[in-house]
Structures are given as C-alpha cells and as structure tokens.
C-alpha cells in the first residue's frame, strides 16, 4: 500500500476516533442520569428567571431526545461552536486557540530540553552499561519522574527565584511568560504567537531575553515528565545497536570510538527516540495543566485549571476534546515522520 493511501486511511480512522471522543464528552456534559444538563451551563447564584432558563434550555435543544441533542452538539462542534466559557468570558474554541501558542512554546521547549538532556544521558549510560555512571543516570532519571510535578515546580521556584533573589544574586522569574515592565516598555506585535520566535523576527532583544528567562523553569519542570522515558529508550536502543554486526565492522576497520558512536550507532539508535519525543509532545500539551498553574503560564492548561476551579464544565469538556484531538493529530504526524526518518519503513 502506498503512503498516500495509508495517510488517507489514518485520516478516516482519525474521524472515527474524534467521533468517539465527542460522544464521551457529550455524555459527560448531558447524559448524567438524574441530572438536568442545564446545570452545567449556568453559574450558581446568578438570579436567572424561569423564563430565562426556559430560553436557554430551548437554545441548547435540551428538551430534544439525547441522540438529537448529540447531532446538534456535533454540528455545533463542526461549525466551531464549542459552547461559551464563563471563565474566559468568550467562546470555548476561541479561548483555547488564543492560548494554544503559549502551551506549544512551553511543550516544544520541554521536549527539546528533555532531548538535549536525555539523549546524551542515554548514550553515556549505554556506553557505560552497569557501571556507576549508568546506575547514576538511571537513578537520577527515575527519581526525577517520581517527584510530583507541582512539588518540583515549587521547589525550583524556591531555589532559583526566591533564594537567589534573597541572596541578591541574579534569579529566574517565578511566573508568567514575560516580565511585566519589559512587556510595557518593549511591546511585541504578535506574528506566530511564540514569544521567542516573534521577538527574534521583530529584533526585540529585551523581550527575547525576558521571554527566554521566563521559559527556563516551567520548561525544565515539564521536561522531567518525559526525561526518564527518553533516557531509558535511548539507552535500550543504543545497547541494541551497539550489539549489531555493522558496529563491530566499523570498529574492526579501526574507526575511532567517537566516530563509531556518533556516526554509526547514534544515527541508527535515535529513530525510536524521535518517535517517543513526538508522542511525548502530545502528552505534554495535555499535561501542562499543573506546570502552567504553578508558573502562571497563560496556556490552555492554566485555562483548564481556572475552568475546574470555576466549575466551568463547558470549558473543561471543551479542553478535553481539544487535547484529545491534538493527541490524535500528533500521533498521526509521528507515524508519518517515522517513515520519513526511517527509509526502511514501508506502508
């Protein structure tokens, strides 16, 4: 089967998966037994009259049978009508899309950081298999993933923001995406939504420096979610490759250890790591809720946390659907990239 046919088939599956996801979130919103779904759409304590409630009920088609409601719901989703968020005071889809660039910037930075740390660590661990370095790398990476992310985030804030600042040393920011005064004095016109890219494109150096310094702590905290997995996969993959005949051949040809590792072993061992990193990106996009909350990073995760605290179930369900959709797309993309990176893969 050709690549195009494979991609089309995957796209069709994708439609089915999304339909399934929409069915689940629809029943979360509307199908709870004994619960009037209208309760999800109104703020408690707001004095809405019975007429107003009737109007809202009609608008949401809540008096129709559930299957009919579902058709209206899916039609709304396809039109971009994902409901109105009380928390964001705007339509759910617009609110999520508006905050997506911040989350993507954070998640990409975290993936890059975990690759930057995880790949060399994995390689070194493989080369020093069962020796002290290997054990140390494995212990550190497992310990890293074992810490709750919110706790680690607060700990990093305490050390790199509070203690350094108290000692009068340069410190890293504790919250936000850019310094308040920098944003006021050197405003940045958005292009892509990524502060780093936009500030480079606009040549806005103060904004770039501030945005980069704000990214360090949240990106590092988030990277720890995927770092341990990455180290272990890199190590296993490297060990596997190092056992191959062509590595033995390369060594017997008298090539230096550096050339063998970097040119022959690493190139072949890195494919599964790249696909893992791709899948991890999807996980991080959804998993940013805690990190974004701790660091007041204005992405979709923080919005979802605000929605949860505000009992805004329309937003929370929209967030679930949004992240599920992204995961599906990222997985598809990773599968496609797999073929590009590894020419042996045929569809």
């Amino acid at each position: 089967m050709g690549f195009v046919a494979y991609a089309l088939r995957r796209l069709a599956y994708l439609g089915l998966v999304l339909l399934g996801v929409s069915l689940i979130v629809f029943f979360l919103l509307r199908g709870m037994p004994g619960v009037d779904p209208l309760a999800a759409y109104i703020a408690p304590g707001l004095p809405m009259s019975p007429e107003a409630l009737r109007g809202l009920r009609a608008e949401l088609h809540l008096d129709d049978p559930l299957p009919v409601q579902y058709v209206y719901y899916v039609a709304g989703l396809l039109r971009g009508d994902w409901g109105f968020s009380r928390t964001a005071a705007q339509p759910v889809l617009g609110a999520l899309l508006g905050r997506l660039p911040a989350t993507i910037e954070l998640a990409v930075a975290a993936v890059l950081l975990s690759a930057l740390l995880g790949i060399p660590a994995g390689v070194v661990a493989a080369l020093r298999k069962d020796r002290a370095t290997d054990v140390a790398v494995r212990v550190v990476s497992i310990t890293g993933i074992s810490f709750p992310v919110f706790w680690l985030g607060i700990l990093l804030q305490l050390v790199f923001f509070y203690y350094l600042q108290t000692l009068g040393l340069p410190s890293l920011p504790s919250r936000g995406r850019v310094g308040d005064l920098v944003a006021l004095q050197h405003p940045l016109g958005p292009i892509t939504g990524s502060y780093l890219i936009d500030s480079v494109l606009r040549g806005n150096a103060p904004f770039l420096a501030s945005a980069a310094s704000h990214l360090v702590l949240p990106a590092f905290t988030l990277s720890l979610i995927s770092l341990a997995a990455l180290v272990r996969i890199m190590r296993a993959s490297m060990l596997e490759v190092l056992r191959q005949d062509y590595i033995l051949l390369a060594r017997s040809k008298g090539l230096s250890g550096r050339v063998v590792v970097l040119r022959h072993a690493l190139r072949n061992a890195i494919t599964p790591v790249l696909t893992t990193a791709g899948t991890t990106l999807g996980i991080l996009l959804g998993g940013a809720v805690v990190v974004e909350t701790v660091f007041s990073w204005p992405g979709i995760g923080l919005l979802a946390a605000q929605g949860i605290l505000n009992n805004d179930s329309v937003l929370v369900v929209g967030f679930t659907l949004f992240v599920a959709t992204m995961m599906v797309f990222v997985n598809l993309l990773v599968d496609v990239l797999y073929a590009v990176v590894d020419p042996r893969v045929r569809y």
Binding site: L158, T293, V294, S296, L309
Partner: peptide, 22 residues
Amino acid sequence: STVIVRATLDQATRLLNLKSGG
C-alpha cells in the same frame, strides 16, 4: 503612575512573590 495586576492562580507562587518583595 503604574498599577500592574497579574492573575496568578497558584497561591504558593503568590506567597513566594510577596515574601521576596517582588
């Protein structure tokens, strides 16, 4: 001359910022 109001959801972060004088 300037008032900056920053939404900071996490109470631990707000407390840390207050303690640091930031």
